[in-house]
Design a protein around this nucleic acid. Structure first.
Lengths: 217, 217
DNA sequence: CTATGTGAACAGCTTCACAGCG
DNA sequence: CGCTGTGAAGCTGTTCACATAG
């Protein structure tokens, strides 16, 4: 329903990679970059880079390339990370706490606003010694989402409750879920889910390694 | 290097999802499943399911469907997880320790054999109270990989050292890397890398949510 | 009648190749 | 000249539709 129509999903994924690479280039005091350079760094053809960027506008200068700082700003705007997104994390297990500690969060435009868990033993505890966020009861989840106007969630709960937690969150207004539970979430149109399943990723490696060699000894 | 030739990468990704779903179905005492049922659970067309499976053999019975237990075994064999893969984890930070604690590892055919870190303060410590694995110095990494014949690695080190650690591991025999560092690893042909970048995933959500609505309030 | 396996049609993404601009 | 932006071509992956098997 709108801005993303006609734009290939793979192109959007690469946008994030371009942004990451550009931020690295900026730190080396490089002011301009060509599609060829960007492509080589990411193992993508230069034509691909140009086409991806051209979906969103004319950002380059013929004969010169792309202005690094400028393109960073453009990409942030396209991806929506020039604004700050409030994020709720549900599930304060090992993985949840590790993700919370990840400092890159805020720098990228995401602000962890609340953390919920169903374990009474965890509720009320501060997550990180130097963070003031305390774990709240999962029964308050919907109310928190509504009152804080939260649109994004990170889901690190066990698989058997993931769907019902997701339903609750969506009902309360969440529009995007980063799901770490090993299950296929069903969500209504307009809601986006991205899933990360450690086992799935390892299986891909296992397949590829097994395909080119004898396999594990 | 052969087995994967002509098979679409997306099909292989879905194989893992089929396997996950089948394991869930088995626990509900379902013995047979159709491509339509599998597809509905995963939001994929039935034709897609059949085509994916048909890349690897004729596993179904016309008029009946697929035998759940049977197909699980077939998929495990194809993915290479009917054998046990030794895995080394490098980087015992928050994320690394969280991944270690993940119990699904062993159940899926992956055995965490060694953990390395460069922080002298961590070396020698047991990771988990009930695990006997101790953190070893990263200078021993190559030797560990060689002597244990390790082929898979999980990389949870800071971005600025990720490439050099990867080089070391590949030199020592690692063929597949699950990379959590926010950087594009360059690896020689035959070596597989799968990357998981939290920021990238969140940006995808931000884009999609921003595309269908006004964005965050 | 149900459900698989598969060639053929279709759709979508990537690469090519070049016109045009600095 | 170098490099972008882009129609056209090429390729890869998905869906259709049906012959075939139980």
């Amino acid at each position: 329903m709108g801005k993303a129509d006609g734009i290939p999903a793979p192109a959007v994924r690469r946008l994030s990679l371009y942004l990451r690479q550009l931020e690295a280039l900026r730190d080396t005091n490089l002011h301009t970059v060509s599609s060829k350079q960007l492509g080589q760094a990411l193992r993508i053809t230069d034509a691909q880079v140009r086409k991806d960027l051209a979906y969103f506008g004319q950002f380059g200068q013929p004969g010169i390339g792309y202005a690094v700082e400028d393109l960073i700003a453009k990409l942030r705007n396209i991806l929506g990370t020039d604004r700050t997104w409030k994020v709720v994390l549900v599930g304060a297990g090992n993985l949840g706490r590790a993700l919370l500690a990840y400092r890159g969060f805020k720098r990228k435009g995401f602000e962890l606003t609340a953390v919920c868990d169903s374990d009474p033993g965890k509720i009320g505890r501060p997550l990180d010694p130097d963070e003031q966020i305390r774990i709240q009861d999962i029964s308050a989840l919907a109310e928190i989402i509504r009152s804080e106007n939260i649109r994004l969630a990170v889901l690190t709960v066990p698989a058997d409750v993931a769907q019902s937690v997701a339903d609750t969150m969506i009902e309360a207004g969440v529009m995007g879920i980063l799901n770490f539970a090993p299950i296929s979430l069903h969500v209504p149109p307009g809601v986006t889910v991205t899933s990360v399943d450690l086992a799935v990723h390892l299986e891909q490696l296992s397949f590829n390694v097994g395909a080119s060699a004898a396999g594990p000894p």
